[in-house]
Computed example of a mutant assay.
Amino acid sequence: MQIYRIDHVAQVTPDLDAQVARLSGLFGFRPVRSWDDPGEGVRGARLEIPGSRGQAWEVVAPSGSGSSLQTWLDEHGGRPGLHHVGAEVPDLEAVQAELEVRGIKATDGARGRWLEASLSPPEHGPGVLWRLRGPGSLDMCGDSSASRAVTGSSDGPSLGIVALDHICQAFHDRDVLARWYQDLAGFVQVWRTADEEHPDMADLVLNIPGSAICWEVIMPRGEDSFISRFLDKGGPGAHHVTFEVSDWDEAMAACSHHETPTFDDEEGVTDGAAWKHTFIHPKHTGGVLVQLFWEERPGVWVRSDKVPPRWT
């Protein structure tokens, strides 16, 4: 199968308006569409991410009775979180056939206009939910005839995000998952840490052909890895989402203005250029662990030539 591009990242929340306000304020996202479809059981909003043309952020909330989103929230103790990654494929029927061959269960949505499925190896648990659509329709985002255009503005400073850089998935073996994604959808490995570089983790980064957003895979190392605890708690799902900011001091000032703490701050110098990164806890973002980074020169925070790929 082929993924043409990642279209959006979606999070589910019990309070749509509050989450849209948070994303508009601290994150500087711009609301562009909204919808309310009790028949489908969903209210939603689509927001533009600065610097990420073609990719958006979607917020969905339960609407009406019997909403599957309400079931999702109930199963997660009422806590908001990342719901799915939306992507466009050239041929939806071909994708469905490929998934069936691989034993991946897919669910039809919007009367067959999109599919929902985890693209991870089915024997390793649920993984990350993807919502896939063919060309010519944005119904999976609510951008149908029932949606309406909206405009929004925020007061105060924002993070100064310039791009959605990558989505990170935790998995027990980075090479197993990377080979699977390469074989399934043509993901290409471009970067990896050396096996012994970190005491508690190892990672690699995959390019998704046609998309500006990359896919990171992290795996546990050692006896007390935070990734092991994550996998024990929820399985091999999405771990965090990473954004690039244009000015580090302004981003930290925006966090202070919006009373949003950060943690695990790190900084360094690579090839003579500085970089910094930090995290924002899910309780301050509406249920998604967010990583922020800044680099003095493009390519020094994650260098594609740092360690050559070990597998083909």
Rank of each mutant, 00 (worst) to 15 (best):
Y4W: 05
H8Q: 02
T13L: 00
P14F: 05
Q19D: 08
L23P: 04
G25E: 14
F29G: 04
S34I: 06
W35N: 01
D36P: 00
D37M: 07
E40T: 07
R43A: 04
G51R: 09
G51K: 10
S52W: 03
A56F: 10
S67W: 01
L69D: 01
L73T: 12
G81F: 05
H83C: 02
H84M: 02
V85W: 04
E88M: 12
G112H: 03
W114K: 04
A117S: 12
W130Y: 15
S137D: 15
M140A: 13
M140T: 03
M140P: 00
C141G: 15
A146S: 12
T151Y: 06
G152H: 06
I161G: 05
A163P: 02
A163F: 01
C168V: 11
Q169H: 10
A170L: 09
R179I: 09
W180K: 05
Y181N: 13
Q182I: 00
G186F: 02
G186W: 03
R192W: 01
T193N: 14
D195E: 15
D195C: 09
H198A: 10
P199T: 06
A202L: 00
A202N: 14
G210F: 05
W215M: 15
V217H: 10
E223D: 15
L231N: 10
G235I: 07
G235N: 07
F243P: 02
D247M: 04
A251N: 10
M252R: 10
A254G: 02
C255L: 15
G272A: 05
P282E: 04
K283H: 12
H284D: 08
G286I: 03
L289G: 06
V290F: 03
Q291A: 01
L292H: 08
E295S: 03
R297F: 00
W301K: 10
S304A: 11
S304I: 11
P309M: 07
T312R: 11
